[in-house]
Design a protein around this nucleic acid. Structure first.
Lengths: 228, 228
DNA sequence: CCTAATATTGAACGATCGTTCTAATTAAGG
DNA sequence: CCTTAATTAGAACGATCGTTCAATATTAGG
Protein backbone atom coordinates (compact mmCIF):
# COMPACT_ATOMS: atom_id res chain seq x y z
CA UNK A 1 0.00 0.00 0.00
CA UNK A 2 2.93 2.30 -0.63
CA UNK A 3 1.68 3.30 -4.07
CA UNK A 4 -1.01 5.86 -4.71
CA UNK A 5 -4.60 5.01 -4.03
CA UNK A 6 -6.60 3.22 -6.73
CA UNK A 7 -6.49 5.68 -9.63
CA UNK A 8 -5.30 9.29 -9.24
CA UNK A 9 -7.44 12.20 -8.24
CA UNK A 10 -11.18 12.29 -8.58
CA UNK A 11 -12.59 9.46 -6.47
CA UNK A 12 -15.77 9.12 -8.49
CA UNK A 13 -15.72 9.05 -12.29
CA UNK A 14 -15.65 6.24 -14.80
CA UNK A 15 -12.18 5.63 -16.16
CA UNK A 16 -12.06 4.18 -19.65
CA UNK A 17 -8.32 3.86 -19.83
CA UNK A 18 -5.56 2.86 -17.42
CA UNK A 19 -3.40 5.54 -15.84
CA UNK A 20 -0.33 6.05 -17.98
CA UNK A 21 3.09 5.21 -16.67
CA UNK A 22 4.24 8.80 -17.04
CA UNK A 23 1.29 10.04 -15.04
CA UNK A 24 2.13 7.68 -12.20
CA UNK A 25 5.66 9.03 -12.17
CA UNK A 26 4.39 12.60 -12.02
CA UNK A 27 1.99 11.81 -9.20
CA UNK A 28 4.78 10.08 -7.29
CA UNK A 29 7.28 12.88 -7.75
CA UNK A 30 4.67 15.27 -6.42
CA UNK A 31 4.28 13.14 -3.31
CA UNK A 32 8.03 13.06 -2.76
CA UNK A 33 8.45 16.78 -3.23
CA UNK A 34 5.49 17.52 -1.01
CA UNK A 35 6.89 15.25 1.68
CA UNK A 36 10.15 17.16 1.67
CA UNK A 37 8.70 20.65 1.51
CA UNK A 38 5.91 20.09 4.01
CA UNK A 39 8.46 18.69 6.44
CA UNK A 40 10.81 21.62 5.88
CA UNK A 41 8.35 24.51 5.96
CA UNK A 42 5.13 23.20 7.43
CA UNK A 43 1.76 22.92 5.74
CA UNK A 44 1.14 26.64 5.41
CA UNK A 45 4.75 27.46 4.67
CA UNK A 46 5.06 25.17 1.66
CA UNK A 47 3.32 26.45 -1.45
CA UNK A 48 1.77 24.35 -4.18
CA UNK A 49 3.93 26.25 -6.62
CA UNK A 50 7.17 25.31 -4.90
CA UNK A 51 6.08 21.70 -4.54
CA UNK A 52 5.24 21.44 -8.23
CA UNK A 53 8.51 23.11 -9.18
CA UNK A 54 10.50 20.76 -6.94
CA UNK A 55 8.78 17.83 -8.60
CA UNK A 56 9.41 19.25 -12.06
CA UNK A 57 5.69 19.32 -12.69
CA UNK A 58 3.00 21.87 -13.45
CA UNK A 59 1.06 23.67 -10.76
CA UNK A 60 -2.18 22.31 -12.10
CA UNK A 61 -0.96 18.74 -11.71
CA UNK A 62 -1.39 18.95 -7.94
CA UNK A 63 -5.11 19.48 -8.31
CA UNK A 64 -5.34 17.04 -11.17
CA UNK A 65 -3.51 14.13 -9.57
CA UNK A 66 -4.20 14.66 -5.90
CA UNK A 67 -7.23 16.89 -5.68
CA UNK A 68 -5.70 19.96 -4.06
CA UNK A 69 -3.21 20.93 -1.41
CA UNK A 70 -4.93 19.52 1.64
CA UNK A 71 -5.69 16.22 -0.07
CA UNK A 72 -2.05 16.05 -1.15
CA UNK A 73 -0.92 16.52 2.42
CA UNK A 74 -3.14 13.72 3.64
CA UNK A 75 -1.95 11.44 0.86
CA UNK A 76 1.65 12.11 1.84
CA UNK A 77 0.95 11.04 5.40
CA UNK A 78 -1.14 8.12 4.28
CA UNK A 79 1.42 6.74 1.88
CA UNK A 80 3.88 5.45 4.46
CA UNK A 81 1.58 5.13 7.45
CA UNK A 82 0.48 1.60 6.82
CA UNK A 83 3.98 0.42 5.96
CA UNK A 84 5.24 1.83 9.23
CA UNK A 85 2.34 0.29 11.13
CA UNK A 86 3.05 -3.09 9.57
CA UNK A 87 6.73 -2.91 10.40
CA UNK A 88 5.84 -2.20 14.01
CA UNK A 89 3.32 -5.01 14.27
CA UNK A 90 5.78 -7.37 12.62
CA UNK A 91 8.50 -6.37 15.06
CA UNK A 92 6.10 -6.94 17.90
CA UNK A 93 5.27 -10.39 16.61
CA UNK A 94 8.91 -11.23 16.19
CA UNK A 95 9.67 -10.13 19.74
CA UNK A 96 6.89 -12.35 20.98
CA UNK A 97 8.22 -15.46 19.27
CA UNK A 98 11.74 -14.82 20.48
CA UNK A 99 10.91 -16.97 23.46
CA UNK A 100 10.12 -15.97 26.99
CA UNK A 101 7.67 -13.30 28.08
CA UNK A 102 7.65 -9.90 26.41
CA UNK A 103 9.62 -7.22 28.20
CA UNK A 104 8.66 -3.57 28.22
CA UNK A 105 11.90 -2.81 26.42
CA UNK A 106 11.00 -5.25 23.66
CA UNK A 107 7.58 -3.69 23.16
CA UNK A 108 9.03 -0.18 23.01
CA UNK A 109 11.74 -1.35 20.68
CA UNK A 110 9.15 -2.74 18.31
CA UNK A 111 7.47 0.65 18.25
CA UNK A 112 10.54 2.87 18.11
CA UNK A 113 13.07 1.03 15.98
CA UNK A 114 11.15 0.84 12.70
CA UNK A 115 10.58 4.57 12.91
CA UNK A 116 14.19 5.44 13.70
CA UNK A 117 15.73 2.88 11.37
CA UNK A 118 13.78 4.08 8.36
CA UNK A 119 14.54 7.71 9.17
CA UNK A 120 18.22 6.98 9.71
CA UNK A 121 19.09 5.80 6.22
CA UNK A 122 16.56 7.43 3.93
CA UNK A 123 16.23 11.19 3.60
CA UNK A 124 12.73 10.84 2.25
CA UNK A 125 11.70 8.81 5.29
CA UNK A 126 13.37 11.34 7.56
CA UNK A 127 11.14 14.01 6.06
CA UNK A 128 8.19 11.74 6.68
CA UNK A 129 9.27 11.26 10.28
CA UNK A 130 9.21 14.99 10.79
CA UNK A 131 5.75 15.14 9.27
CA UNK A 132 4.55 12.51 11.71
CA UNK A 133 5.78 14.69 14.55
CA UNK A 134 3.99 17.66 13.03
CA UNK A 135 0.70 15.86 12.67
CA UNK A 136 0.96 14.32 16.12
CA UNK A 137 1.36 17.68 17.84
CA UNK A 138 -1.28 19.65 15.96
CA UNK A 139 -4.98 19.48 16.76
CA UNK A 140 -5.62 20.64 13.24
CA UNK A 141 -4.64 17.20 11.92
CA UNK A 142 -6.50 15.36 14.62
CA UNK A 143 -8.51 13.35 12.11
CA UNK A 144 -5.31 12.08 10.51
CA UNK A 145 -3.87 10.99 13.84
CA UNK A 146 -7.10 9.26 14.71
CA UNK A 147 -7.36 7.39 11.47
CA UNK A 148 -3.74 6.50 10.77
CA UNK A 149 -1.81 6.55 14.04
CA UNK A 150 -4.16 5.82 16.90
CA UNK A 151 -5.04 2.21 15.97
CA UNK A 152 -1.40 1.14 16.16
CA UNK A 153 -0.86 3.22 19.27
CA UNK A 154 -3.82 1.47 20.86
CA UNK A 155 -2.30 -1.92 20.18
CA UNK A 156 0.96 -0.96 21.86
CA UNK A 157 -0.81 0.61 24.81
CA UNK A 158 -2.73 -2.64 25.29
CA UNK A 159 0.51 -4.56 25.07
CA UNK A 160 2.08 -2.40 27.77
CA UNK A 161 -1.06 -2.55 29.88
CA UNK A 162 -0.77 -6.33 29.86
CA UNK A 163 2.63 -5.97 31.51
CA UNK A 164 1.16 -3.88 34.35
CA UNK A 165 -2.02 -5.64 35.41
CA UNK A 166 -2.59 -3.27 38.30
CA UNK A 167 -2.25 -0.02 36.38
CA UNK A 168 -5.07 2.03 34.89
CA UNK A 169 -5.12 2.25 31.13
CA UNK A 170 -5.32 6.03 31.29
CA UNK A 171 -2.10 6.23 33.26
CA UNK A 172 -0.40 4.05 30.68
CA UNK A 173 -1.72 6.14 27.82
CA UNK A 174 -0.18 9.19 29.45
CA UNK A 175 3.26 7.63 29.68
CA UNK A 176 2.92 6.31 26.16
CA UNK A 177 2.32 9.81 24.85
CA UNK A 178 5.38 10.98 26.79
CA UNK A 179 7.37 8.23 25.11
CA UNK A 180 6.08 9.00 21.64
CA UNK A 181 7.02 12.65 22.17
CA UNK A 182 10.52 11.67 23.20
CA UNK A 183 10.79 9.46 20.11
CA UNK A 184 9.53 12.20 17.81
CA UNK A 185 12.02 14.62 19.31
CA UNK A 186 14.80 12.53 17.82
CA UNK A 187 13.63 13.50 14.34
CA UNK A 188 12.68 17.09 15.10
CA UNK A 189 15.28 18.13 17.64
CA UNK A 190 18.61 16.56 16.79
CA UNK A 191 19.88 20.09 16.23
CA UNK A 192 18.71 21.02 19.71
CA UNK A 193 20.50 18.06 21.25
CA UNK A 194 23.68 18.92 19.42
CA UNK A 195 23.61 22.48 20.63
CA UNK A 196 22.81 21.63 24.22
CA UNK A 197 25.49 18.96 24.30
CA UNK A 198 27.85 21.24 22.39
CA UNK A 199 28.74 18.18 20.44
CA UNK A 200 29.71 17.73 16.84
CA UNK A 201 26.91 16.33 14.67
CA UNK A 202 26.92 12.53 14.54
CA UNK A 203 28.80 12.35 17.79
CA UNK A 204 26.09 11.97 20.40
CA UNK A 205 23.46 12.29 17.89
CA UNK A 206 23.55 9.62 15.26
CA UNK A 207 20.00 8.42 14.98
CA UNK A 208 20.79 4.77 15.47
CA UNK A 209 22.89 5.59 18.49
CA UNK A 210 19.91 7.35 20.05
CA UNK A 211 17.60 4.35 19.85
CA UNK A 212 19.15 2.52 22.78
CA UNK A 213 19.15 5.41 25.27
CA UNK A 214 15.65 6.31 24.14
CA UNK A 215 14.27 2.85 24.80
CA UNK A 216 15.93 2.61 28.19
CA UNK A 217 14.67 6.08 29.03
CA UNK A 218 11.07 5.33 28.07
CA UNK A 219 10.97 1.93 29.71
CA UNK A 220 12.23 3.19 33.04
CA UNK A 221 9.95 6.20 32.83
CA UNK A 222 6.87 4.11 32.19
CA UNK A 223 7.69 1.71 35.01
CA UNK A 224 8.18 4.56 37.46
CA UNK A 225 5.06 6.45 36.47
CA UNK A 226 2.56 3.61 36.31
CA UNK A 227 3.49 1.88 39.54
CA UNK A 228 0.99 3.21 42.02
CA UNK B 1 10.73 42.60 31.87
CA UNK B 2 7.20 41.56 31.06
CA UNK B 3 6.37 44.92 29.49
CA UNK B 4 7.32 45.87 25.97
CA UNK B 5 10.89 46.69 25.16
CA UNK B 6 12.13 50.24 25.71
CA UNK B 7 9.99 52.27 23.29
CA UNK B 8 7.80 50.65 20.60
CA UNK B 9 8.90 49.76 17.15
CA UNK B 10 11.85 51.37 15.44
CA UNK B 11 14.95 50.54 17.48
CA UNK B 12 16.84 53.64 16.40
CA UNK B 13 15.18 57.07 16.37
CA UNK B 14 15.11 59.86 18.90
CA UNK B 15 11.90 60.00 20.84
CA UNK B 16 10.89 63.44 22.02
CA UNK B 17 7.79 62.34 23.86
CA UNK B 18 6.84 59.41 26.03
CA UNK B 19 4.71 56.64 24.55
CA UNK B 20 1.08 57.38 25.28
CA UNK B 21 -0.89 55.16 27.60
CA UNK B 22 -3.33 54.27 24.85
CA UNK B 23 -0.50 53.23 22.57
CA UNK B 24 0.89 50.91 25.21
CA UNK B 25 -2.53 49.28 25.53
CA UNK B 26 -2.73 48.80 21.78
CA UNK B 27 0.75 47.31 21.60
CA UNK B 28 -0.11 44.97 24.46
CA UNK B 29 -3.41 43.82 22.99
CA UNK B 30 -1.56 43.02 19.79
CA UNK B 31 0.89 40.85 21.72
CA UNK B 32 -1.96 39.00 23.43
CA UNK B 33 -3.89 38.43 20.22
CA UNK B 34 -0.74 37.33 18.41
CA UNK B 35 0.08 34.91 21.20
CA UNK B 36 -3.33 33.27 20.89
CA UNK B 37 -3.48 33.16 17.11
CA UNK B 38 0.11 32.05 16.55
CA UNK B 39 -0.45 29.25 19.05
CA UNK B 40 -3.70 28.22 17.39
CA UNK B 41 -2.70 28.38 13.75
CA UNK B 42 1.08 28.53 13.62
CA UNK B 43 3.25 31.35 12.34
CA UNK B 44 2.27 31.04 8.70
CA UNK B 45 -1.34 30.18 9.47
CA UNK B 46 -2.05 33.32 11.48
CA UNK B 47 -2.42 36.47 9.40
CA UNK B 48 -1.53 39.97 10.50
CA UNK B 49 -5.06 40.96 9.57
CA UNK B 50 -6.65 38.44 11.91
CA UNK B 51 -4.27 39.33 14.71
CA UNK B 52 -5.05 43.03 14.38
CA UNK B 53 -8.78 42.31 14.23
CA UNK B 54 -8.60 40.11 17.33
CA UNK B 55 -6.80 42.90 19.12
CA UNK B 56 -9.32 45.47 17.95
CA UNK B 57 -6.55 47.39 16.24
CA UNK B 58 -5.61 48.43 12.75
CA UNK B 59 -3.51 46.31 10.44
CA UNK B 60 -0.92 49.03 10.21
CA UNK B 61 -0.43 49.05 13.96
CA UNK B 62 1.46 45.77 13.79
CA UNK B 63 4.18 47.33 11.70
CA UNK B 64 4.03 50.58 13.64
CA UNK B 65 4.29 49.13 17.13
CA UNK B 66 6.22 45.95 16.58
CA UNK B 67 8.00 46.34 13.29
CA UNK B 68 6.31 43.63 11.25
CA UNK B 69 5.02 40.09 11.60
CA UNK B 70 8.27 38.29 12.31
CA UNK B 71 9.36 40.87 14.87
CA UNK B 72 5.95 40.56 16.51
CA UNK B 73 6.40 36.80 16.78
CA UNK B 74 9.77 37.16 18.43
CA UNK B 75 8.44 39.75 20.84
CA UNK B 76 5.62 37.40 21.81
CA UNK B 77 8.11 34.68 22.67
CA UNK B 78 10.44 37.11 24.36
CA UNK B 79 7.79 38.67 26.56
CA UNK B 80 7.33 35.74 28.92
CA UNK B 81 10.61 33.95 28.38
CA UNK B 82 12.55 35.72 31.08
CA UNK B 83 9.72 35.49 33.59
CA UNK B 84 9.55 31.76 33.02
CA UNK B 85 13.31 31.45 33.29
CA UNK B 86 13.30 33.37 36.56
CA UNK B 87 10.54 31.24 38.01
CA UNK B 88 12.56 28.15 37.20
CA UNK B 89 15.78 29.49 38.67
CA UNK B 90 13.89 30.62 41.76
CA UNK B 91 12.31 27.19 42.16
CA UNK B 92 15.74 25.64 41.82
CA UNK B 93 17.12 27.90 44.51
CA UNK B 94 14.23 27.14 46.80
CA UNK B 95 14.71 23.41 46.32
CA UNK B 96 18.36 23.81 47.21
CA UNK B 97 17.65 25.59 50.50
CA UNK B 98 15.03 23.06 51.49
CA UNK B 99 17.78 21.19 53.25
CA UNK B 100 19.57 18.03 52.22
CA UNK B 101 21.07 17.31 48.82
CA UNK B 102 19.16 18.07 45.63
CA UNK B 103 17.31 15.13 44.16
CA UNK B 104 16.79 14.62 40.46
CA UNK B 105 13.05 14.91 41.05
CA UNK B 106 13.51 18.27 42.72
CA UNK B 107 15.58 19.61 39.81
CA UNK B 108 13.03 18.43 37.26
CA UNK B 109 10.21 19.80 39.34
CA UNK B 110 11.84 23.21 39.34
CA UNK B 111 11.98 23.08 35.57
CA UNK B 112 8.58 21.59 34.86
CA UNK B 113 6.23 23.01 37.47
CA UNK B 114 6.50 26.71 36.64
CA UNK B 115 5.70 25.86 33.03
CA UNK B 116 2.73 23.64 33.84
CA UNK B 117 1.39 25.77 36.68
CA UNK B 118 1.30 28.91 34.59
CA UNK B 119 -0.31 27.08 31.70
CA UNK B 120 -2.87 25.43 33.95
CA UNK B 121 -4.63 28.52 35.20
CA UNK B 122 -4.11 31.14 32.52
CA UNK B 123 -5.37 30.72 28.98
CA UNK B 124 -2.90 33.28 27.71
CA UNK B 125 -0.03 31.37 29.27
CA UNK B 126 -1.36 28.14 27.84
CA UNK B 127 -1.13 29.70 24.39
CA UNK B 128 2.42 30.72 25.21
CA UNK B 129 3.24 27.20 26.33
CA UNK B 130 2.14 25.90 22.94
CA UNK B 131 4.30 28.50 21.26
CA UNK B 132 7.29 27.34 23.25
CA UNK B 133 6.68 23.82 21.96
CA UNK B 134 6.43 25.17 18.44
CA UNK B 135 9.67 27.10 18.64
CA UNK B 136 11.50 24.24 20.33
CA UNK B 137 10.66 21.77 17.57
CA UNK B 138 11.33 23.99 14.57
CA UNK B 139 14.79 24.67 13.18
CA UNK B 140 13.39 27.81 11.66
CA UNK B 141 13.27 29.42 15.12
CA UNK B 142 16.65 28.09 16.13
CA UNK B 143 17.97 31.55 16.95
CA UNK B 144 15.08 32.11 19.36
CA UNK B 145 15.72 28.82 21.14
CA UNK B 146 19.39 29.62 21.38
CA UNK B 147 18.92 33.07 22.79
CA UNK B 148 15.93 32.56 25.08
CA UNK B 149 15.71 28.91 26.04
CA UNK B 150 19.15 27.36 25.86
CA UNK B 151 20.78 29.34 28.68
CA UNK B 152 18.25 28.08 31.22
CA UNK B 153 18.37 24.60 29.75
CA UNK B 154 22.13 24.65 30.16
CA UNK B 155 21.83 25.49 33.85
CA UNK B 156 19.50 22.58 34.47
CA UNK B 157 21.64 20.19 32.46
CA UNK B 158 24.61 21.20 34.59
CA UNK B 159 22.54 20.65 37.70
CA UNK B 160 21.62 17.17 36.57
CA UNK B 161 25.16 16.43 35.50
CA UNK B 162 26.29 17.21 39.03
CA UNK B 163 24.05 14.39 40.23
CA UNK B 164 25.72 11.89 37.89
CA UNK B 165 29.45 12.49 38.20
CA UNK B 166 30.29 9.55 35.98
CA UNK B 167 28.01 10.41 33.09
CA UNK B 168 28.95 12.30 29.94
CA UNK B 169 27.32 15.67 29.50
CA UNK B 170 26.18 14.74 26.01
CA UNK B 171 24.26 11.76 27.31
CA UNK B 172 22.56 13.95 29.86
CA UNK B 173 21.67 16.54 27.24
CA UNK B 174 19.98 13.80 25.24
CA UNK B 175 17.81 12.70 28.12
CA UNK B 176 17.07 16.30 28.98
CA UNK B 177 15.72 16.91 25.49
CA UNK B 178 13.59 13.77 25.85
CA UNK B 179 12.23 15.19 29.09
CA UNK B 180 11.54 18.60 27.64
CA UNK B 181 9.66 16.95 24.79
CA UNK B 182 7.56 14.98 27.22
CA UNK B 183 6.82 18.16 29.13
CA UNK B 184 5.88 20.07 26.00
CA UNK B 185 3.57 17.26 24.96
CA UNK B 186 1.40 18.08 27.94
CA UNK B 187 0.53 21.42 26.39
CA UNK B 188 0.35 20.26 22.78
CA UNK B 189 -1.10 16.77 23.09
CA UNK B 190 -3.65 16.68 25.88
CA UNK B 191 -6.24 15.92 23.22
CA UNK B 192 -4.12 12.99 22.09
CA UNK B 193 -3.86 11.63 25.61
CA UNK B 194 -7.60 11.93 26.08
CA UNK B 195 -8.31 10.04 22.92
CA UNK B 196 -5.83 7.28 23.54
CA UNK B 197 -7.03 6.85 27.10
CA UNK B 198 -10.63 7.20 25.92
CA UNK B 199 -11.10 9.33 29.00
CA UNK B 200 -13.27 12.33 29.59
CA UNK B 201 -11.37 15.63 29.53
CA UNK B 202 -10.03 16.62 32.94
CA UNK B 203 -10.13 13.04 34.11
CA UNK B 204 -6.65 11.77 33.43
CA UNK B 205 -5.67 14.93 31.88
CA UNK B 206 -5.88 17.87 34.17
CA UNK B 207 -2.62 19.70 33.73
CA UNK B 208 -1.71 19.80 37.37
CA UNK B 209 -2.48 16.11 37.71
CA UNK B 210 0.02 15.39 34.95
CA UNK B 211 2.93 17.10 36.65
CA UNK B 212 3.57 14.30 39.12
CA UNK B 213 3.59 11.39 36.66
CA UNK B 214 5.67 13.49 34.29
CA UNK B 215 8.34 14.19 36.86
CA UNK B 216 8.52 10.58 37.99
CA UNK B 217 8.64 9.50 34.37
CA UNK B 218 11.48 11.84 33.46
CA UNK B 219 13.51 11.19 36.57
CA UNK B 220 13.42 7.43 36.17
CA UNK B 221 14.14 7.75 32.46
CA UNK B 222 17.16 9.92 33.00
CA UNK B 223 18.56 7.62 35.67
CA UNK B 224 18.17 4.58 33.45
CA UNK B 225 19.64 6.18 30.36
CA UNK B 226 22.69 7.89 31.85
CA UNK B 227 23.93 5.04 33.99
CA UNK B 228 26.57 3.38 31.88
C1' DC C 1 -4.15 75.88 26.65
C1' DC C 2 -0.96 75.40 22.60
C1' DT C 3 1.54 72.84 19.50
C1' DA C 4 4.19 69.57 17.71
C1' DA C 5 5.15 64.69 18.17
C1' DT C 6 2.85 60.41 18.24
C1' DA C 7 -0.83 57.28 17.13
C1' DT C 8 -4.84 55.69 14.56
C1' DT C 9 -7.36 55.35 10.45
C1' DG C 10 -8.59 53.58 6.01
C1' DA C 11 -7.07 52.68 1.64
C1' DA C 12 -3.91 51.05 -1.50
C1' DC C 13 0.45 48.66 -2.93
C1' DG C 14 2.65 44.65 -5.28
C1' DA C 15 3.42 39.83 -4.35
C1' DT C 16 1.93 35.38 -3.79
C1' DC C 17 -1.51 32.14 -2.57
C1' DG C 18 -4.60 27.75 -4.31
C1' DT C 19 -7.56 26.74 -7.92
C1' DT C 20 -9.40 26.50 -12.57
C1' DC C 21 -9.75 26.89 -17.48
C1' DT C 22 -8.57 26.01 -22.57
C1' DA C 23 -5.59 24.33 -25.85
C1' DA C 24 -1.92 21.29 -27.09
C1' DT C 25 0.31 16.92 -26.44
C1' DT C 26 0.75 12.11 -25.18
C1' DA C 27 -0.34 7.32 -25.07
C1' DA C 28 -3.83 3.34 -24.09
C1' DG C 29 -7.25 0.28 -26.31
C1' DG C 30 -8.89 -1.70 -30.20
C1' DC D 1 -2.29 2.80 -36.97
C1' DC D 2 -6.45 5.49 -35.35
C1' DT D 3 -9.20 7.23 -32.24
C1' DT D 4 -10.04 9.43 -28.20
C1' DA D 5 -9.42 9.50 -23.25
C1' DA D 6 -5.89 11.02 -20.28
C1' DT D 7 -2.38 14.17 -19.25
C1' DT D 8 0.45 18.24 -19.58
C1' DA D 9 1.25 23.11 -20.62
C1' DG D 10 0.58 27.74 -19.76
C1' DA D 11 -2.14 31.45 -18.55
C1' DA D 12 -5.40 33.58 -15.83
C1' DC D 13 -8.76 33.78 -11.88
C1' DG D 14 -10.13 36.02 -7.48
C1' DA D 15 -8.60 35.97 -2.79
C1' DT D 16 -5.49 36.99 0.63
C1' DC D 17 -0.95 37.90 2.14
C1' DG D 18 2.46 41.64 4.69
C1' DT D 19 3.68 46.23 4.16
C1' DT D 20 3.29 51.17 3.34
C1' DC D 21 1.34 55.76 2.85
C1' DA D 22 -1.21 60.15 3.39
C1' DA D 23 -4.71 62.10 6.12
C1' DT D 24 -6.85 62.58 10.54
C1' DA D 25 -7.16 62.29 15.49
C1' DT D 26 -5.03 62.13 19.89
C1' DT D 27 -2.08 63.46 23.61
C1' DA D 28 2.48 64.54 26.10
C1' DG D 29 5.29 68.41 27.25
C1' DG D 30 5.89 73.03 28.12
Amino acid sequence: MTATKPPPAAPERMRRRATSKRALVTAGKLLDAAERLFAERGYDGASVRDIAAAAGAQIASVSFHHGGKEALFEKVIERRASELAELRIAALGKARTNGGPLTLEAVLSAFVRPYLDKAADDAQWLAYARLVAMVSADRRWRHISQRLFDPTAGIFIDEIAALFPGAKRGAIAVTFVFSVSAMLSVSTSRWRIEELADAAPDQVTDMDALADPLIRYCAAGIRAAVSV
